[in-house]
Nucleic acid binder design. Structure first.
Length: 358
DNA sequence: AAGCTATTCAACCGCTCGTTC
DNA sequence: GGAACGAGCGGTTGAATAGCT
């Protein structure tokens, strides 16, 4: 199958569009619809290829396009969706009305990616980079912030909380290190669905790992999405397990899924087959549905999920069990719903450092 | 003011996928 | 089944602009 010549055809104009060309394109599409893009330029009296016309229309001239700065909510949505979907810009764009895939892609490449890198996170996996050099910017920024805070006086408490947050971060980075996949596995493959499977991760019989996992689950809200056979390797004494036909939710920090009709923000959640939405503050999720099934039982919300019921007020979210007395992590990381694999972006957005570095 | 560098984003390129014949 | 084609997608480029020296 050869490539279609399209824009290679000589004599066709390339480069920036003039307002005259824009008018021609808009008027034609308003009257006739775009029909066949290949045929459109001739019919509209444009010396452009159809592809160029399509791009100009979908990325710039379409009447429903929303221009201007991305809101923090949109930023959050992009981060959440990117952590689940990767560079599926068009899919991400379907969750952001009025934004084009091109615009989101540009915003990611020029802003969000840089923020993640500066914070010491891998923008592909949304996980902390475990090599010491990549962590340096984050550590320096933390140190600077700490110093800044120590020189103001509102902040002994804040410094303590910051230290505790940093300790949490360190704990989790160590956990990530313990659970990290073999080096042969590419980050891209890992980011496809963000599921830790037994084949790509070493779930050790290492008491330290489970101890750390358990401690993190108790005093913060850090989640892990695992496949069922991985879960089988975790001693049951570590977890409280609730079970139904399609999912098993293991919740050391006691946080139930809630019916999605009560969910305040569907966009940033995952929905299970039995229409339960996973909110923040869960700890470990796994599926009991088909031991060898590569597919997650969790899915992104669709427009069909946006029923009128979603407008009913959300129930009070139960407080996080917080054995460590760490109000910082609890107050920072609790709150809005999140998808299991999108906790890192949410952590970042809640992290003052994230805004500091922006 | 001029020159240089960094950033942004519209547009292009080349590939893949789905449909038709 | 496979060739041809159209449409769409993600990656990349480069002109315009902003910021800095």
């Amino acid at each position: 199958m050869g490539r279609s010549p399209c824009c290679d055809e000589s004599g066709l104009k390339k480069g920036p569009w003039t307002s005259e060309e824009d008018d021609k394109l808009i008027n034609y599409i308003k009257k006739n619809g775009h029909g066949s893009w290949r045929a459109l330029p001739k019919l509209a009296g444009l010396n452009r290829c159809g592809k160029s016309c399509r791009l100009r229309w979908t990325n710039y001239l379409r009447p429903d396009i929303k221009r201007g700065k991305f809101t923090p909510e949109e930023e959050q949505t992009i981060l959440n969706l990117h952590s689940v979907l990767g560079n599926k810009w068009s899919t991400i764009a379907t969750h952001l009305p009025g934004r084009t895939d091109n615009e989101i892609k540009n915003f990611w490449n020029t802003h969000l990616k840089k923020k993640l890198i500066q914070m010491g996170f891998d923008p592909m996996t949304h996980r902390p980079r475990t090599d010491i050099f990549s962590s340096i910017p984050h550590l320096i920024a933390l140190a600077n912030l700490k110093e800044l805070m120590e020189h103001n006086s509102w902040e002994k408490q804040a410094v303590r909380l910051q230290n505790e947050a940093a300790a949490q971060m360190a704990k989790f980075q160590y956990l990530q290190y313990l659970l990290q996949p073999p080096s042969s596995m590419s980050p891209a493959a890992f980011s496809n669905n963000n599921i830790i499977s037994p084949s790509n991760v070493n779930i050790p019989n290492d008491f330290d790992t489970f101890d750390l996992l358990n401690s993190l689950s108790k005093d913060s809200t850090l989640p892990l999405l695992m496949e069922p056979s991985s879960i089988n390797n975790i001693p049951s004494s570590f977890m409280n397990t609730s079970n139904n036909n399609s999912t098993t939710t293991i919740q050391p920090s006691i946080h139930d899924s809630i019916p999605f009709s009560h969910l305040p923000d569907l966009e940033s959640c995952l929905i299970s087959k039995d229409n339960m939405v996973q909110t923040s503050n869960f700890s470990v999720l796994c599926s009991t549905q088909g031991e060898n099934s590569p597919t997650s039982p969790w899915r992104l919300p669709t427009s069909d999920d946006l029923s009128p019921a979603t407008s009913s007020p959300p129930p009070a979210i139960p407080p996080v069990t917080n054995t460590g007395g760490d109000d910082c992590s609890a107050s920072s990381y609790e709150g809005g719903p999140s998808s299991p694999s999108s906790i890192w972006p949410e952590l970042l957005l809640d992290d003052p450092l994230f805004h500091e570095l922006a």
